[in-house]
Amino acid sequence: MIIAKVIGTVVSTIKHPAYHSYKLQVVQPLNLPGELPEETFLALDSAHAGVGDTVLVMREGNGARQVTQIKDAPIISMIVGILDSVEITEQAKGNSR
C-alpha cells in the first residue's frame, strides 16, 4: 500500500456497475523530502475519506475484489484506510537516496 492524500473527487453516472456505491477520489501519493513526486491517480473509496485526508491506498485488483465482494470487478486502486499518524525512523534515511 502507499500513503497518499485525497485532493479531489470524480463524479460519474454512466460507469461500470462495480463502481456504484463507492466514491471515486483523486489521490496524490506523498513523497519523502528529496524524492520525485509521483503521478496523481484515481482510487475507489471504501474508507469514506474526505478531501485533504491522508489515506492508505491499496493498488491491486484482487484486493479490490475482496473489499467490494464483486467477482471480476475491474478495480485496481482502493482507499482502504484513513491514517491518523505515521512514524518513519531516521535509519530509513539512508536507503531512499
Binding site: 473527487t9 470524480v10 463524479v11 460507469k15 461500470h16 471515486l24 519523502l32 523530502p33 485533504g52 505515521v86
Partner: peptide, 18 residues
C-alpha cells in the same frame, strides 16, 4: 470504464511531502 460528469480537485492542497 466510466464517463466522467465532473472532476473537482482542491488546488489549495500543496503539501505532498512526508
Amino acid at each position: 470504464i466510466g464517463v466522467v460528469d465532473t472532476v473537482d480537485v482542491d488546488r489549495s492542497i500543496r503539501d505532498f511531502e512526508l
